[in-house]
Amino acid sequence: MASYSTYLKLCFTIFFLINYVPASVQLSSTFYSSSCPKALSTIKSAVNSAVSNERRMGASLLRLHFHDCFVNGCDASVLLDDTANFIGEKTAAPNNNSARGFDVVDTIKSKLESICPGVVSCADILAVAARDSVVALGGSSWTVPLGRRDSTTASLTDANTNLPSPFSDLSDLISAFSNKGFTTKEMVALSGSHTIGLAKCALFRTRIYNETNINTKYATSLKKNCPSSGGDDNLSPLDTTSSTVFDSAYYTNLINNKGLLHSDQQLYSGGSGSTDSQVRAYRNNPASFFTDFGNAMIKMGNLSPLTGTSGQIRTNCRIVNSG
Score class of each variant (00 low, 15 high):
108 I>L: 07
81 D>N: 09
40 L>S: 15
268 Y>V: 15
116 C>I: 06
315 T>V: 10
274 S>G: 14
307 T>S: 13
2 A>G: 15
234 N>Q: 02
60 S>P: 07
150 D>T: 03
38 K>L: 03
153 T>S: 01
250 Y>Q: 12
163 L>R: 04
309 T>F: 01
46 A>Y: 08
91 T>A: 02
150 D>I: 01
293 F>C: 15
179 N>C: 07
236 S>A: 02
231 G>F: 04
126 L>M: 02
266 Q>D: 05
211 E>R: 13
293 F>M: 04
214 I>G: 03
189 A>V: 14
250 Y>S: 08
108 I>F: 02
181 G>F: 03
46 A>D: 10
240 T>H: 12
177 F>R: 05
67 H>A: 11
323 G>C: 14
109 K>T: 11
141 S>A: 07
220 T>L: 04
286 P>C: 04
121 S>D: 03
5 S>Y: 15
312 Q>K: 05
202 A>D: 06
319 I>Y: 07
230 G>M: 05
256 N>Q: 06
290 F>D: 15
26 Q>K: 15
217 K>M: 14
103 D>S: 12
50 A>G: 02
214 I>Q: 09
168 S>V: 00
286 P>K: 00
133 S>T: 03
297 M>R: 06
170 L>N: 11
234 N>W: 10
137 L>P: 03
93 A>F: 12
88 G>W: 12
26 Q>H: 14
